[in-house]
Computed example of a mutant assay.
Amino acid sequence: MQFNAKRGLVAVGALALLLTGAACGNDDGGSTGGGNGASVDKGFKVGLLLPETKTTRYETFDKPLIEAKIKELCPKCEVVYQNADQNHDKQLSQAESLITQGVKVMILDPVDAKAAGGIVTKAKDANIPVISYDRLTQGPISYYVSYVNKQVGITQGQALLDALSKDGDPKRGQIVMINGSPTDPNAADFKAGAHSVLDGKVNIGAEYDTPDWSNDKAQQEMEQAITKLGKDKIIGVYAANDGTAGGAIAAMKSAGFAKIPFVTGQDAELAAIQRILTGDQGMTVYKAIKPEANAAAEMAIAAATGQTYSAASTTTNNGSVDVPSVLLPPVAVTKDNIKDTVVADGFYKVDQICTAEYAEACKAAGLL
């Protein structure tokens, strides 16, 4: 999978180039460094804690990309990986296990960002720096890498508003908002961004926060909205990610919608790209994972070896500290730019997207 900076995602590609080779400076060790004797020459253990498997990106992209970058930067290093399956208590136990195993740095994507402050505190007590990955964790973390999360919601909300406006008065019916997990701070940012675009311009007939980002719960929420509003009144759906979008679409199909209204999404999951091709989903947000994973790996090596990661050019306050951060821009994907985004960047190959079932839709979109 090769990140192509020349087509579609110039800003992300440029930042990816900035990150390359920036992990290890010559700083004598500050608050971001580990100072725990870790050495690239000798190698050390890097803990990697990811939150769940319901979203396909973590196992398919984040984990292997982070592992590959760690191996590139530190050939003798070992990545010790655990997935929490959306269970904070399990993630806490996994973190304690990593500390016992002697990891020198921890990359943490928390199930519950607030509760994960306890993980960060335990790690700090063991002199282990923590890199907050994708979701902003509370506590004394060393670095944070993610996307401009409010902009994700703005991008989704604007796409929905544009689609509704194209077909007439955006207040002619009701929209349903299916937000993400209430324990995920990113979900709050997505929600705030979407509301900043939609409030006052559309009628929000029903809104839900979806525990655990569960596809099944999103489907149930959509079923409740259909019962409450009536299927003929629903003209659009704000779904915070592709999993919840899939649940909402399944509910509408079961309810016998003559045409699925415009549905947003996020993560550019393969199933979502295929739904966009067939018209079942309106858009998704592509967050190029490779530069995020690379930055996390570079931050981890720098922090473990007591050096400064100079590419963290901004800060994010997590409620207790201003965290040196890398924040990447999101990109909207529609039927019109699939070829110039996820295909051009090698995120998916055309033959992965254009199976026999989607061949005609792919031809219509210029992919075949």
Rank of each mutant, 00 (worst) to 15 (best):
L73F: 06
G118K: 11
Y143A: 06
K290M: 08
T355L: 08
A268E: 02
S325C: 05
A113F: 05
V343D: 02
S196F: 11
K231V: 08
D280V: 00
Y208W: 12
V326W: 11
S214Y: 06
D209T: 06
I226H: 07
T355S: 14
F262E: 00
Y144A: 05
A5T: 07
Q86M: 08
N294W: 15
L328N: 07
K228G: 02
A251E: 07
L49G: 10
S254I: 03
T305G: 05
Y358D: 06
D216L: 05
L108T: 10
Q174P: 08
F190T: 01
T20A: 13
M252Y: 10
A84V: 11
M299A: 15
G205Q: 03
G35F: 08
V323W: 11
Q156R: 00
L108A: 07
T137N: 08
Q82M: 08
G34M: 06
A23I: 02
P140D: 14
Q352V: 12
D267A: 02
D27F: 11
G230E: 03
A187S: 15
V10Q: 15
K150A: 12
D28F: 11
D28I: 09
G306E: 11
G282C: 06
Y81R: 03
T137Y: 03
G34H: 08
G306R: 11
D125L: 12
M1Y: 13
A188H: 14
L48R: 01
D216T: 10
I235R: 00
G43P: 06
N83H: 02
V79K: 00
V79G: 05
D184V: 04
G236C: 07
G13L: 04
C362T: 11
A364K: 14
T227Y: 00
M177I: 05
L15Q: 09
S214Q: 01
F347M: 00
L92P: 00
I175Y: 01
P211H: 03
Y58E: 10
G346C: 11
Q219I: 02
A364L: 14
K124Q: 14
K166I: 01
S132P: 07
V342A: 05
S214H: 03
T284Q: 06
I276Q: 03
V152W: 03
F61C: 02
G193C: 04
D167V: 15
T155S: 13
V80N: 02
I175H: 02
N203L: 07
P185E: 00
K122N: 14
K290Q: 14
D162T: 04
G366S: 11
P170H: 10
K290Y: 12
Q2S: 13
L18I: 10
A296K: 05
V323Q: 01
K124Y: 06
A23P: 05
V323T: 10
S132Q: 04
T308R: 07
V46Q: 04
D89G: 05
T264H: 12
G29L: 13
P51F: 13
V326F: 12
G279K: 04
A23K: 06
P329A: 09
S165R: 13
